[in-house]
Simulated scan of single mutants.
Amino acid sequence: MDYKPRYTQPFTLAEARLLDVETITEEIARLQNSLQRLDETQKMLREHVDSIQPEVDPEISKAIQENETVIGSQSERISMLKMALADRGVTGSHYDLAPPVSRVVGSSGAGAPAEPHGEENGGVDL
């Protein structure tokens, strides 16, 4: 099966399939923790933006957009890792993500996902 990710990833699905199950599951857990923190940060940023409308600092809008790209990339990376686990017969709801958080920001449009650019934090280096 050929998989083409939307975002730039530090590894391919074929490379993920070569990782041992423990490494894959640890990376899924790390990414899920990162996504939880990013969602919390996004919520705080949006609340701040909502409280100061229409005088939104462009740096805050930029941070929200960059976080959206990282969230999309990390979510996709988790999906790739789950595919690698499924190929080994390892499945289950233990690795499922929480439902996505709404990512709409006021009328400024600052919540629209930015184009993928590959700048994520850490991960598995192959």
Rank of each mutant, 00 (worst) to 15 (best):
Y3K: 10
Y3H: 07
K4E: 04
K4H: 06
P5K: 00
P5W: 02
P5M: 10
R6N: 00
Y7P: 06
Y7L: 03
Y7R: 01
Q9S: 08
Q9H: 05
P10D: 08
P10L: 03
T12H: 00
T12N: 14
L13V: 05
L13C: 00
A14P: 13
R17T: 12
L18I: 15
L19S: 13
D20F: 11
V21M: 04
E22M: 15
E22T: 13
I24C: 09
T25N: 12
E26D: 14
E26C: 14
E26I: 15
R30D: 09
L31S: 09
L31G: 10
N33Y: 13
S34E: 15
S34W: 08
L35P: 10
Q36A: 14
Q36E: 14
Q36D: 11
Q36G: 06
D39V: 00
D39G: 07
D39K: 02
D39N: 08
E40I: 07
E40K: 12
T41S: 06
Q42G: 00
M44P: 05
M44R: 00
L45C: 08
R46G: 02
E47T: 00
H48L: 05
H48C: 03
V49N: 11
I52H: 05
I52Q: 11
P54F: 11
E55T: 07
V56P: 15
D57N: 15
D57V: 02
E59Y: 15
E59R: 13
S61Q: 12
S61M: 09
K62Y: 07
I64K: 02
E66R: 13
E66I: 14
T69E: 13
V70P: 10
V70N: 13
V70S: 02
I71Y: 08
I71N: 01
I71K: 05
Q74R: 07
S75I: 09
E76V: 11
E76P: 02
I78N: 10
I78Q: 04
S79I: 02
S79M: 06
S79L: 09
S79P: 09
M80L: 03
K82Y: 00
K82F: 05
A84W: 07
L85E: 05
A86N: 07
R88D: 12
R88Y: 05
G92T: 10
G92L: 09
G92R: 04
S93Q: 08
S93P: 03
S93I: 12
S93W: 06
H94P: 05
H94Q: 15
H94C: 14
H94A: 15
D96K: 00
D96Q: 02
L97I: 06
L97G: 06
L97C: 01
P99K: 02
P99N: 01
P100S: 09
P100V: 04
V101Y: 00
S102R: 07
S102G: 12
R103G: 06
R103H: 03
V104H: 11
V104M: 07
S107H: 14
S108L: 14
S108K: 11
S108V: 02
G109W: 01
A110Q: 06
A110R: 10
A110D: 04
A110V: 11
A110P: 05
G111Y: 00
G111L: 08
P113E: 01
A114D: 12
E115H: 13
P116R: 09
P116H: 04
H117A: 07
H117T: 10
G122T: 09
L126M: 15
